[in-house]
Amino acid sequence: MRDAYKEFDWLATYGPFYDVSCVSFARSLPPREALTRLGAGPGDIEQVTFDGLQERTMECIDADNLRSDYVGALETAGWTVLVQLWTGSAAFNRLLPTLSQGTEVVSISRNLHADDHFTYAIDGEEITCFNQLSPQTRMGSEPDRLFLEMWEVGLDPHHEWEGPGLHATFQRSFALAKKLTGVAFSQSMLDMRFLAARIRNV
């Protein structure tokens, strides 16, 4: 079961998700409503391909902090998948209480130059979150809520600093998300059409 992360190896290759990105899953929340909750105006939401999402992301990068506020959303298996390129978790997670109100959200962030985070939120509350490189240090109202699931995908909740380093933590985080949502974020999803918009300045 710990090898289940291998289906997500494509995310760790050099590409749009490799450097700085955030992928979130929101249960029973249509893409348009998810974008609206994040601050998109009704008239700002457009339909784009993944190539279009990348182009618009670059157009919307803030020159001062090199962060984009453009988000794409698609719906699959009862969950909306939100894709944001060139943004870090600390900023995006400030919007999780609003996004997760009345539902649950799983969010995975990647920042090759700083920290990678995993966050699980329910009804506006951060339940469990951790740095993917140090899963033994968990925060939230129920830091041990995902203990078994983390162990099953190889994000060792008892990891010791002096022990061997953790391997493929980014991919394992998507394996953990799959256990919680039933949704495997696949490369084929990038062939789908996204609803997308600029959100609040994060």
Rank of each mutant, 00 (worst) to 15 (best):
I45P: 06
V106F: 01
A121E: 04
K6C: 05
A40F: 05
M1V: 13
R32W: 01
P135I: 13
K179N: 07
M192F: 10
G15L: 10
E162L: 08
S107C: 15
V20Y: 02
I199A: 13
G78S: 04
R37H: 07
L190G: 06
L155T: 07
E152L: 11
R37A: 09
K6P: 01
G41M: 08
G124A: 07
H113E: 14
V48W: 04
L66A: 15
P16V: 15
L195G: 03
D191R: 05
V105D: 02
S141D: 09
T36Y: 01
T36I: 05
A177C: 04
F50M: 05
D123C: 07
R193I: 14
G154W: 03
E152G: 01
L112T: 15
F147I: 08
I127G: 02
M1P: 09
A77D: 14
G41C: 04
G154E: 02
A121Y: 08
G165D: 14
H117P: 00
S141K: 14
F8R: 01
C129M: 12
A26I: 13
L99A: 04
D51V: 15
V71D: 04
F8S: 06
T80R: 00
V105I: 09
S68I: 09
R110N: 15
Q132D: 03
G102D: 09
F118E: 06
D62C: 11
D51I: 11
L195Q: 14
G39A: 07
T103I: 04
E59K: 10
L99H: 06
P135W: 05
G78C: 06
H158A: 08
D116G: 12
S173N: 06
A12S: 15
F147K: 06
D123E: 09
Y70E: 03
S173C: 12
K178F: 05
L66I: 13
S186Q: 13
Q132E: 13
S107K: 01
V20H: 08
R200L: 07
A91H: 09
T87M: 05
G78R: 02
L74D: 08
F118I: 09
L146Q: 06
E152S: 13
L38G: 06
Q47N: 07
Q132F: 08
L176I: 06
Q54A: 11
A40G: 09
L99M: 04
T49G: 05
T13K: 05
A40T: 10
L146A: 06
D44T: 14
E142M: 12
L29Y: 03
E142Y: 11
F92A: 11
S141F: 09
A196T: 12
Q171T: 13
F8T: 12
A12G: 12
T103V: 07
L95Y: 12
S28V: 08
T103E: 02
T181Q: 01
Q136M: 06
T36F: 01
Q101F: 03
G43E: 15
A34H: 00
A40P: 07
G39F: 06
F25R: 00
L148W: 03
G43K: 05
T36D: 00
K178G: 00
Y120V: 13
T119L: 11
V71L: 07
A12N: 08
E55A: 13
W79I: 05
L195F: 11
